[in-house]
Design a protein around this nucleic acid. Sequence first.
DNA 1: ATGGTAGGCCCCCTA
Length: 260
Amino acid sequence: MLIASWNVNSITVRLPHLLDWLKSASPDHLCLQELKTVEEKFPFDQLSEIGYSAHVVGEKTYNGVAILSKSTTECVSKFLPGSPEPFQSRLIEVCVDGVYILNLYVPNGSEVGSAKYEYKLAWFKALISYIEERHVKNGVVSDKLVICGDFNIAPEDRDVHDPAEWIGQVLVSEPERDCFRQLINLGMIDSFREFEQGAGHFSWWDYRMMAFRRKRGMRIDHILVSPPLKEALKRSWIDIEPRKLEKPSDHAPVIAEFEI
DNA sequence: ATGGTAGGCCCCCTA
């Protein structure tokens, strides 16, 4: 079974890339972020034609998340209780055959110390409570849980093209990394790092300054796996091919394979 | 300290 995650930066613009990628990669479930549209304009029909159903939380212009699946899934949640105001569509969770898939679009944070940065930290605090209430027993995640998404956090310096240049900045600041570590402390496993220890593996590159060509990126999109799924995890990787296309998303899809 | 590029939308905001 393949579970993938991709920040498409507008599903309207990226639909051709998305359909092509689904046909070639053929994931069982794909978590999408930054739809930038409302549910009424979501391309259910075109996705259905290639075998995918979808649960969607959209909004006009910003944010928006969805989970596409080949099989039928049960939607568990479409919002984050206790998240700071105003509401933003950044969380959706489904359940399928006893496996929970939680899809996140973590706030970007804009700049350390800004109001948006405080929103990001408050949002993550609510996220930890959400996970603790639903999936944690005795301090660890006891359910079969996969947390996918654009975390807007590069967990360690090896996930950053130039750590010295980025020190203390948004996406890499210690309070943000503390947020990520809280999930690790609940037992969640960074699937990518189970198979690859090296630096230079990125999932996002700024559109500006030819960042992709210059390999100046960050690994901020993640698939985390709970302890009950660890043995089933067989592979985890980043597919940078769609980032090479004309009019790409600034993010690449990340994929995890399970023997289930 | 700033700018560069992209997407959506209402001439600017977010990333």
